[in-house]
Design a binder for these strands. Structure first.
Length: 278
DNA sequence: ATGACTGACGATGTCAGA
């Protein structure tokens, strides 16, 4: 507690996390323990898999988080939790239709526009779902261009795309396959051309760092994973990004999500703007 | 070997995930 007060008082640093939890209800205790341990200021969640009325809101309230949720029955679902308040919550892409999958939510945290997104998996490159995935990435780019131009942005989520060969455990095997097909990588690169930076790559250029490992077989033990969960920062915030880590330990806990959280630490004036006022 | 696990829904299986 003292250390946290000191950090908050003197180092002006905030933690922003993104985590595909693969069902917030199945993961409620694990997430609560993780939040108590890591104390992130802002958390973007994906694959909550629950309608809004059944979201475990009390747990987040108990821990001091304001909450914005966009869920649906069985599948998908995104949320943003913040210890610094949430304003101007918006659900969906800029041209969202009623009944669409719940895959995007945005909220403003002290002047920073925060997005939590769950990009469609695509099923396989040959599937019609792959075209839906490409279309979602394009419309996500349009949404950022229209709704968040010129303001500090944190775009978090499970993008279901590995950007670089270093982001897949076997780039030769994955080339042209789902999660590492040129069409989806180009779509994501175009989105980043709006002026967004992959926070993880600010400080780490090497391979072997992943955010997802298959539940099946020995994927985790052999570190055969994919880095498909990202925190993207607008340039002003990227300049204040002190550290980024993927909390692979959370993937090794009992009954884990198949995704690990990504945690970004920001310092400086923008961080102060994001900071809790407690 | 389009498999292996896991969760939701709601049933003793099917779909989706990545």
């Amino acid at each position: 507690m003292l250390a946290r007060r000191l950090r908050r008082s003197y180092s002006a640093s905030v933690l922003v996390a993104s985590w595909n939890v693969n069902s917030i209800r199945a993961r409620q205790d694990l997430v609560e323990n993780w939040l108590r341990d890591q104390r992130p200021d802002v958390v973007c969640l994906q694959e909550t898999k629950v309608v809004d009325d059944d979201f475990p809101s009390e747990m987040f309230q108990r821990l001091g988080y304001a909450l914005a949720v966009a869920g649906q029955r069985s599948y998908n679902g995104v949320a943003i939790a913040s210890r610094s308040g949430l304003e101007d919550v918006e659900i969906g892409l800029w041209d969202e239709r009623p009944g669409a999958d719940r895959r995007l939510i945005a909220a403003t945290v002290n002047g920073v526009r925060v997005f939590s997104t769950y990009v469609p998996n695509g099923k396989s490159v040959a599937s019609p779902d792959f075209a839906v995935k490409l279309d979602f990435l394009e419309r996500l780019r349009e949404t950022l261009a229209r709704k968040a131009a010129g303001v500090p942005v944190i775009l978090c989520g499970d993008f279901n795309v590995a950007l670089e060969p270093e982001d897949v455990y076997d780039p030769i095997k994955f080339e042209g396959q789902l999660h590492f097909h040129p069409d989806e990588r180009v779509r994501l690169e175009r989105l980043l051309e709006l002026g967004l930076v992959d926070a993880f790559r600010i400080h780490e250029k090497g391979g072997g760092y992943y955010s997802w490992w298959d539940y099946r077989g020995a994927s985790l033990r052999k570190n055969e994973g994919l880095r498909i969960d990202y925190v993207f920062l607008s340039r002003d915030l990227a300049e204040r990004c002190v550290s980024v880590r993927i909390d692979a330990a959370a993937r090794r806990l009992p009954r884990p999500s198949d995704h690990a959280p990504v945690i970004v630490q920001l310092s400086g004036p923008s961080a102060e703007a994001l900071q809790a006022t407690d």
